[in-house]
Each structure stands twice: as structure tokens, then as C-alpha cells.
Nucleic acid binder design. Structure first.
Length: 892
RNA sequence: GCGGGGGUGGCAGAGCCUGGUCAAAUGCGCAGGACUUAAGAUCCUGUGGGUUAGUCCCUGCGAGGGUUCGAAUCCCUUCCCCCGCACCA
């Protein structure tokens, strides 16, 4: 069978018949399965491959289960690489992007993902980004958009500003250049208006999103409850405001630290003898904070700036320092320092020989500041704290805060780490920010009916923002005063585009609003979202924010966009992450061209649980390939399938049917739990079992079993299954066939156990024959032993305590020690759940009768006389080795 | 430092939630056999150690304890690895 041809054939058929096209049908239960849409680099990599194989498997499974499945694909098509291509290769970003999208689509189609291609979207089309602009203006109308001067992250590599979320370890997330801090006028979105809700609603996602993602978001939002304390500066009328989570240590303050960038610093040193020194220090720190941010445990540097604050709690005067360990970006940029009870302050104080004052001690113990080797941060009781002495420190926190509040020295407050989203970029290939800068009217939004503001073509790439080089673009009339004005030349962060694309898929052609409310009502929220962990904060936080905003302007009726999230693991090769720079990349194309798409998917899904890391293994790929080949071979000379009557089946056939249904049960459960590797393993067992028994069952039963296997495999290897489905005389596509049900009645686990026993027994006999070299004339099989009878009698009378006693006694005899397990199963069966244990409970009677039934088979097999003997009725010492499920063997 | 996830055979990877059907699915590797002139493909068998004709039995799931009739699984202690965040006051 030519795999390439077969795959192409079915891909074409699927496309021609449009079987994956869906529409909203309110009467049908829906399932929205979505993968994070890719940036169209032009090349599909293994990470995409894994992502989409998982998604496609789920989509296909749900579809077969009868869900109306929305499973779309599109492209996150704005972004820097297109612009870089323009600079390096002289290709227009639009042309480059469309070429890449075409390539990507072709590759995706070649793998046979079951997307509804009619819903394809690309964020770089005016039809899409028009609605970016529309939403942006709606946000502006709601007061969520503002333009302001602020210290921002500047990436010299990308020549643009970055959002906080896009700075990793002081470096640009994309190009890894060191990010600098600049004061610039930029556009911001007030995501902070939603801080509390973004935090609170993480609860709704518990157990549905990976815990680590929830934690990352929680940390990113970074809520901490504390107290603002204002300190009067001696000999001035100025105050320094600090934030602390430990107001209980207020009596322990011995100095105060400010961030070097703190605006008050310059004011305070202005014209003093400290000015020069302080300025020098600030320069040093600024330089260092960029280059050495990552180095851990570095020394805490700082200098005294010449003034003192007054501690409102006890009137003490404390010196004010600036130090690199205080950061401007958190709290107020100034910290009250309590070296005895904060490790950082402790280290700084040691280095600069500042005093320490203990104000909290463990219960019933005394601490001396000279003895401290590190800050004491455990709970305790207040000392040296005036009227708050002897209070438990937790209680003291609120009491001291209350006291500060009544005395007007401070107040309780909540701090967050999350800051507003810096949205503007000084780049070309993005959504134009739909604003006009008018000298008279300020920033004015473009009227909604004039959208979209289209990207101009007459731009030059090179230095700076290309949009500024367009002649036609910049000059416009102010929509308000009709006077001369300039168009805003910044574009939007591409994360804006991806924050709502999942809504657009519901009605991709809709042109009256970003999405059709009715359609969204049916399809949303996304039931299963799948993507990489790298978006744990960025994209997933922004999307949550968008959903909440769109809800607040009345467009949505739910709070969270993604009901379930699966963060797929990385792909490793040789124990390290597959990456271009290391050169350990395997391209999906290499695999699909050599083995076919089915092999690639089957391998990827069988190699590891979706959320875990997965080691690439060429041999494993080959094994998947062989499995598909085997399946093809098995299916080669099959006739069409007929319904079979279970009543007429032989025991062997019944057993096969039972195994089929057991596998259906197990595979269904495994796929539902997204344990694809386990599901595949179950199918493999059944396939091997069936191929071994090919000669023992009728064609009908064989075909019946084989067809169920095809159905079970269809989500994993759809092309091969379609082909075999057709060959075995089925009508229609297996992709849209009904997922098989299992019949509980047919699953006979006891029969399975017996079969195993027989198989093992045969093996044992064979071993004995081989090792003794004896031609057997007669084989005696001693079945089970008497001990169980004894137990069973006791149990029948349900005297559990006596049973326990017997078991304890039995344990002492090494011979039958292992039977304790059997015994306890029986006890459990009485006391707990009988049905749960029945399948493994072989009574002696059953086992004897089973072997009696198999006597003929054994005779034939070993071509000699076979005698089945009840072990306890025999005097032969070989009988002693007989155990439940393991007959004793004697060969004569 | 804080937070999260791990440590199972020669390797990858199930089993742990819900203790007993577990020496442990499946795949790879390795060894032996069948087929073949041979190789490959395919099929069969074996594959922790000791012992054994085979079963039984002993030992064994990072280490050490505990609970239990019974622990890879539950609890405690400890070591190691990975991943996030990080001078967050």
C-alpha cells in the first residue's frame, strides 16, 4: 500500500466532501477544540506537530462521539519576522506573510488535521484587524486606554518598546537583546482595572487548567496585603511613603532605603554635599541593573544620602539610604528597613554596619542582636515595641496598622505586581492604532465607520518606524475639528490580535461586529484549549482580560474564555530541547515523507503523556510505522463486516469478542483522560492478540473485531483507518462514523483470567518438556488446593475476626504465605464491594471445571494423555505446588 | 530563597489518586529460535538477582523509618534532578 497516495486520497476526499465543516446547530451538543494558532513562519516544527496531533485526536474522538465539533485553524500573522524579511530580502511583509501562510497550510493539510478550513483567519487582513481597532476604541471609550509618559522597556534589537510580560530576565523575549529602561510616551491598556477579577477567577479554573499555569498567573498578578507608612523627613516638610507587609516590626526600623530611581532622591540631595556622590552611584546602578540583573546573591550596594526620617512609632531618627536592592517597580519604591527581621535588610546592615533592633522574639525565648546569624522571620511576640509589647506578631500587624491609620501616619493597602499593558509598538507589521493626534484636540479616535485604518504600502524599511516614512499615511484631518492633524504611527502589540481570535472563528466572515453574538453564544467558551506553556502568563492572561472586558460591554455572557487548558510538554532529542541553535531538530516533513502522517501522529501520541516532556526516538517512529503496516497486512484480505450473533460463538470467539469490548471500554476511558499512550497500548494488545488468533476464529468474528479496532484507531491514524474502513466494505467515512459502544455483558474478565492460566500452564509444560527432554506419555495437572475451601467455609459464616485469625496463623507457615492475598480479597469482597473483586476470584470449583473443559485441547496440544486432578484429593507431593491459577505439573 | 513537578527494569514510559489481579502495560534495545543461500522483513520465545525441571520461595520501584495481615502505591524524614518566579519589602 502506498502510504503517501492513500493519505493524499483521503485528504482530498475529506476536503471535497467538506466533512469537517460545521455550523452552529443549537439542538446539537457542541465541542470547541482549539490549538493556539501559530505564527506563520512558513515551517511547521515538531512542537506544532505535537500540539495539533493532540488537538486533532481530541477533535476526532469528540466528533465520533456525536459532538458538533468546532475545530478551526488560522494564523497569528502580524509580527516582526515579516518586517525583518522585508529588510533582509526586500520582500514586502504582506507578501512574505501570505507565502508563509500558504506553506504552513499546505503542510498542515498534508498531515490530515480535521480542521474546518472554511473558518481560516489571518490577523493581518484588514477584515480582521479592523475589529482590533474597533475593540481598541471601545476600550478607549470605557476609559481603559490611555497615552502617557512612563518608564518603559526598550528593546534595541527589535527597535521597539515591550510589555512587562515580554521581558524575561531583563532580555527581550523574542530577540534576547538586553532591554533598557527609557522614559517614553506610549499607549497603555488598563488591564489593572481587572486585577482583582483576574486573580479571583483563577479559582474557576482550578482542576481545569494546569496548576502551574494558575500559579504563574497568580504570581504575575502578585497580590500582597500590607501597610503604607509615611515617614516625615527631618528638617523638611516632605514625607517618604513606604510599603510593608510587616508593620509589626515598625519599632525595629533602623534606617530607610529608597530605590536609586526614586524621584524624591534627586530632590533631597539637590545642592547638598552628597549630590555628586549620589548621582555617581545612580549611574553605576543603572548600568549594573541591566547587565548583572541575573547574578544571584550579589552584594547589596548603597549609600547614605544625607537625611533622616522620623519613625512615627517611637520618634527615633533613622538615616535614609539609596540601595540597589530597592526597586522602583514595586510598592512605593521605598522600604522601611528592619535588619533584625528581614534577611535583605540584615545583609545590608551587616555590610554597612548599621544597628539592629530586635522587636520580635520566639515565645519564651530571648534574642540578642549580636548573636543573630540571619534575620529572625518566624512568628513570635513583640518586644521593645512600646504599648504593643507582648502581642502576638500576627495580631500586632492589624493593631499597628489601625493605630497608624488613626494617627494619619499610614493605612492598610493592597499591592499588585501587575501593571498596565504597554500596547504600542514602533513597528510596521501590526494593527495601526486608530488614533489621530491633533494639535488642538489632542488624541482623537478614528470614527468607527471609518475603520479599518489600513496599513499603507509606501513605506521604507530600515531604521526606525517604517510607518513614519509613508507620505499618505500620516497627514489626515482631525475628525473633531477638521483641522490639520497627524495620524498615530505606532501599531499594536500582536498579543492584542491573539487575545480574541477564538471568538472570530465562530463567525469568521461576519462584518457587522467582531463576532456574531448568536454564534458565539453557541460555540463559546472553548471546551479544550491546547498550547505551549510559554504563554502561561502572556497570551492566556490577555485573553482572560479581553473576555472580561467584552463581557462588560455586553458582548459576552461568560467570564472565562477557555474552560479547559492543556499545556503540552516539550520535545527533546538526546535529553535536550529540540532547537535550531543546538541543531537537534527533526522536521515533521522528514517523518511524513518517509513514513506518512499517520506514523508521525501515532508515534507522537504514544511516546508520552501530552503534558509531559517527550523524548524523540527514531526507533519508536519505526515501531509506529510497523504497527500501521501490520494493520494494513491484517486488513488486506478482509471481506465485508457482518453483524455477528453472540449466541452462536464458540468459547474462543466469545473470548475475542469480550476482549474487543474490554478494549473499547479502556480506550474510551483513556482518551477521555487524554492518556493517549495508554489508549494506544490497549489497542496494540488487542491487535496482537487478534493477529495471533486469526486462525482460531471465524472470518465474521475476525472482521468484527478488526472493524472495532479501526474505529478505536481512527482518531490516531485517520488515513489508514479510512482506507481499511473502505476496504472492509463500510459505507461513508470512518472520520464521521459512530464511536463504538461497549457491552458490559460481553466483558468476561474471568474468562480472560482462565485463558491466561491456560496459556501459562501450556508454557510451563513446554518448559518442562524442553528441559527434561522427555517425550511425555502422560501429563498430570493438579489444580488448586484445599486451603481455600477451609477459608471459604469460614467466610460463608461471615465471621471476619475468625478469618483474620486464620490468616494470621497461615502467614506463619511459609508454604502458603502468598495465599494471604487471596484470602484478604475474599474478606474485602464480603465487607466491601463484592463486584469489584469478582473477576479475579477463581474458586477451586471453577478452575477444576475449566481445566476439565480444556482437557481435550491439552491432549491435542501435547499429543498425550492429560489428567486433571483436584490437588487436595491427591497424595502426590507435586500436588503441593498447585495454587489457585497455577496448576502443579507432573510429566510421566 | 519561594513555588511547582519528578526519581520505577539496559532505555523510554504506564502503574501511585482509589494499597492486594504488580516483577510491573506498551514500545525500544538485547539474547535465542523459525523462515531465508544470505541479509532484511515477519513470526515465536526469553530478558532484575539468587534458586529451580517448571512452579514455589527470597530480594527488589532514589535512601531511611512508620501505618497495615499486606506498600511502587498512604504518612514522616532525607538525598538528588528538572521547571517556573525572584533583591516583591
Amino acid at each position: 500500500m502506498d502510504i503517501q497516495k492513500v493519505e493524499k486520497k483521503w485528504q482530498n476526499k475529506w476536503a471535497k466532501e467538506g466533512i469537517f465543516k460545521v455550523k452552529a446547530e443549537p439542538k446539537k451538543k457542541k465541542f470547541y477544540c482549539l490549538e493556539m494558532f501559530p505564527y506563520p513562519s512558513g515551517k511547521l516544527h515538531m512542537g506544532h506537530m505535537r500540539n495539533y496531533s493532540i488537538g486533532d485526536c481530541i477533535a476526532r474522538f469528540k466528533r465520533m462521539q456525536g459532538y458538533n465539533v468546532l475545530y478551526p485553524m488560522g494564523y497569528d500573522a502580524f509580527g516582526l519576522p515579516a518586517e525583518n524579511a522585508a529588510i533582509l530580502q526586500g520582500i514586502k511583509p504582506r507578501d512574505w506573510t501570505f507565502k508563509c501562510m500558504k506553506d504552513m497550510e499546505e503542510q498542515e493539510r498534508n498531515i490530515g488535521f480535521s480542521y474546518d478550513w472554511s473558518r481560516k483567519i489571518a490577523t493581518c487582513t484588514p477584515e480582521y484587524y479592523k475589529w482590533n481597532q474597533w475593540i481598541f476604541i471601545k476600550m478607549y471609550e470605557k476609559g481603559l486606554v490611555y497615552k502617557g509618559k512612563a518608564p518603559v522597556n526598550w528593546c534595541p534589537g527589535c527597535n521597539t518598546v515591550l510589555a512587562n510580560e515580554q521581558v524575561e530576565n531583563g532580555k527581550c523575549w523574542r530577540c534576547k537583546s538586553l532591554v533598557t529602561q527609557e522614559m517614553l510616551e506610549q499607549w497603555f491598556i488598563k488591564i489593572t482595572d481587572y486585577t482583582e477579577e483576574l486573580l479571583k477567577d483563577l479559582k474557576l479554573l482550578e482542576n481545569k487548567w494546569p496548576e502551574r499555569v494558575l500559579i504563574m498567573q497568580k504570581n504575575w498578578i502578585g497580590k500582597s496585603k500590607g501597610t503604607i507608612i509615611n515617614f516625615k523627613i527631618k528638617n523638611t516638610n516632605k514625607t517618604i511613603s513606604t510599603f510593608t507587609t510587616r508593620p509589626d516590626t515598625i519599632f525595629g526600623i533602623t534606617y530607610l532605603v529608597m530605590a536609586p530611581e526614586h524621584p524624591l532622591v534627586a530632590e533631597l540631595v539637590n545642592g547638598t554635599k552628597h549630590e555628586a556622590e549620589v548621582k555617581k552611584f545612580i549611574e553605576e546602578v543603572k548600568h549594573e541593573s541591566m547587565l548583572e540583573r541575573e547574578s544571584l546573591n550579589k552584594d547589596k550596594k548603597g549609600i547614605f544620602i544625607g537625611c533622616y526620617i522620623i519613625n512615627p512609632a517611637n520618634g527615633e531618627e533613622c538615616p535614609v539610604y539609596i540601595a540597589d536592592y530597592a526597586v522602583m517597580g514595586y510598592g512605593t519604591g521605598a522600604v522601611m528597613a528592619v535588619p533584625a527581621h528581614d534577611q535583605r535588610d540584615f545583609e545590608f546592615a551587616k555590610k554597612h554596619e548599621l544597628p539592629m533592633k530586635i522587636v520580635i522574639t520566639p515565645k519564651g525565648k530571648k534574642l540578642k542582636s549580636e548573636d543573630l546569624k540571619e534575620a529572625y522571620t518566624e512568628p513570635g511576640v513583640l518586644v521593645n515595641s512600646g504599648k504593643f509589647n507582648n502581642l502576638d506578631n500576627e495580631k500586632a500587624k492589624s493593631l499597628i496598622t489601625k493605630w497608624l491609620q488613626t494617627e494619619k501616619f499610614g493605612k492598610a493597602t493592597i499591592q499588585y505586581k501587575l501593571r498596565d499593558w504597554l500596547i504600542s509598538r514602533q513597528r510596521y507589521w501590526g494593527t495601526p492604532i486608530p488614533f489621530i493626534n491633533c494639535e488642538k484636540c489632542g488624541t482623537v479616535p478614528v470614527p468607527l465607520n471609518e475603520l479599518p485604518v489600513k496599513l499603507p504600502d509606501d513605506v521604507k524599511f530600515g531604521k526606525g518606524n517604517p510607518l513614519e516614512t509613508s507620505k499618505e499615511y500620516a497627514s489626515v484631518k482631525c475628525p473633531k475639528c477638521r483641522g490639520k492633524a497627524k495620524r498615530e504611527t505606532d501599531t499594536m502589540d500582536t498579543f492584542f490580535d491573539s487575545s480574541w481570535y477564538y471568538l472570530r472563528y465562530c463567525s469568521p466572515e461576519y462584518d457587522k461586529a467582531p463576532f456574531d453574538l448568536e454564534k458565539v453564544k453557541y460555540w463559546m467558551p472553548v471546551d479544550q484549549y491546547i498550547g505551549g506553556i510559554e504563554h502561561a502568563v502572556l497570551h492566556l492572561l490577555y485573553s482572560r482580560f479581553f473576555t472580561k472586558f467584552l463581557r462588560d460591554i455586553g458582548l459576552l455572557k461568560f467570564d472565562e474564555p477557555f474552560s479547559k487548558l492543556l499545556a503540552q510538554g516539550m520535545i527533546l532529542k538526546g535529553g535536550i530541547k529540540m532547537s535550531k541553535s543546538i541543531g537537534n531538530i527533526i522536521e515533521p516533513r522528514e517523518i511524513t515523507e518517509k513514513y506518512g502522517a499517520d506514523t508521525a501522529r501515532l508515534f507522537i501520541l504514544s511516546a508520552a503523556l501530552p503534558e509531559k516532556e517527550m523524548e524523540w526516538n527514531d526507533k519508536g517512529v519505526e515501531a509506529s510505522y510497523k504497527f500501521i503496516k501490520k494493520l494494513n497486512t491484517m486488513g488486506e484480505d478482509l471481506g465485508s463486516v457482518k453483524e455477528i450473533s453472540m449466541k452462536k460463538l464458540s468459547n474462543k470467539e466469545k473470548n475475542v469478542a469480550g476482549k474487543v469490548h474490554k478494549t473499547i471500554r479502556d480506550v474510551t476511558k483513556s482518551i477521555e483522560d487524554y492518556e493517549f499512550n495508554v489508549a494506544i497500548s490497549s489497542i496494540t494488545i488487542l491487535v496482537n492478540n487478534l493477529s495471533r488468533k486469526a486462525e482460531e476464529v471465524s472470518r465474521e468474528v475476525y472482521n468484527y473485531a478488526f472493524n472495532k479496532i479501526l474505529l478505536l484507531l481512527a482518531p490516531f491514524t485517520p488515513h489508514a483507518c479510512e482506507e481499511l474502513w473502505e476496504k472492509t466494505g463500510n459505507k461513508g467515512f470512518i472520520s464521521t462514523a459512530k464511536w463504538p459502544d461497549f457491552d458490559k455483558e460481553l466483558i468476561d474478565e474471568k474468562a480472560d483470567v482462565f485463558e491466561d492460566v491456560l496459556e501459562k500452564t501450556c508454557k510451563d509444560i513446554n518448559n518442562v518438556i524442553k528441559l527434561t527432554g522427555k517425550e511425555p506419555e502422560k501429563i498430570n495437572l493438579y489444580v488448586s488446593n484445599a486451603w481455600k475451601y477451609e477459608l471459604a467455609d469460614v467466610i460463608r459464616k461471615a465471621d471476619i475476626s475468625k478469618v483474620k485469625e486464620i490468616i494470621k496463623e497461615s502467614m506463619k507457615k511459609p508454604k502458603i504465605k502468598q495465599n494471604g492475598n487471596e484470602a484478604m480479597k475474599i474478606i474485602q469482597a464480603i465487607s466491601k464491594d463484592m463486584s469489584k473483586l469478582v473477576p479475579v476470584k477463581i474458586t477451586q470449583k471453577d478452575e477444576y471445571e475449566f481445566f476439565k473443559e480444556s482437557e481435550e485441547y491439552l491432549k491435542k496440544m501435547f499429543n498425550c494423555e492429560v489428567q486433571i486432578i483436584k490437588a487436595e484429593e491427591s497424595n502426590d507431593n507435586k500436588a503441593r505446588s498447585a495454587l489457585p491459577g497455577k496448576p502443579g505439573i507432573k510429566i510421566e
